[in-house]
């Protein structure tokens, strides 16, 4: 992939898709790149689907709303179904095969599926499937340097939840190994 990313992170509210996007833009911030992060907002946040658009570029970001993603990060079936039609050729698509079982082959698109949520749970990382997927996303796209990614996760885990930092790093490494 090139160095310009237009990503969509989507899933159920509570799965941490906004957080996953935040980790990615945080890493771009460390590398002093242009970036934007834009969440969906409003009633759909309340228990429905949540998504965010992430742009990373060397040029100033125009619209932060990603309509033609070259990365789709789908944590459930409705999200995959909603966005798969808009991905551009050459895109990378990640989907959780447990929560998003119906994944199709799209020509010119690299699709990676794994039971991320199940793997997270089996590894004592319940609730961190989002971060496992970020690890996998990094492996497939190298959106930043490896070292930066770990700096980004440190910046994103709030001090109040410092005990979760190690599990988050473990989740990243797990994703990177898949």
């Amino acid at each position: 992939m090139g160095r310009d990313f237009n990503m969509v992170f989507a899933g159920f509210g509570g799965q941490g898709v906004l957080f996953a996007g935040k980790v990615v833009v945080e890493s771009a911030l460390f590398e002093d790149r242009e970036l934007s992060w834009m969440p969906s907002y409003g009633p759909e946040m309340r228990g429905g689907t949540a998504n965010c658009s992430v742009c990373i570029s060397d040029e100033p970001i125009g619209s932060p709303l990603v309509l033609e993603p070259n990365v789709l990060f789908a944590m459930n079936q409705p999200s995959y179904d909603k966005f798969i039609g808009s991905v551009v050729p050459g895109a990378v698509v990640l989907a959780d095969s447990v929560l998003c079982p119906n994944v199709k082959d799209v020509e010119g698109v690299s699709t990676f599926t794994a039971p991320f949520s199940q793997l997270a749970e089996e590894n004592g990382l319940k609730g961190l499937a989002n971060v496992v997927m970020v690890g996998k996303l990094w492996k497939e796209t190298h959106f930043c340097e490896e070292e930066t990614l770990f700096k980004a996760i440190e910046a994103c885990v709030p001090p109040k939840k410092a005990h979760l930092l190690e599990p988050n790093k473990k989740a990243l490494r797990l994703g990177m190994s898949l």
Binding site: K22, V25, L29, L35, S36, W37, M38, P39, Y41, P64
Partner: peptide, 10 residues
């Protein structure tokens, strides 16, 4: 507007 208010940038 809602876009500028909701989006994150450096």
């Amino acid at each position: 507007d809602g876009m500028l208010g909701q989006m994150m940038e450096p």
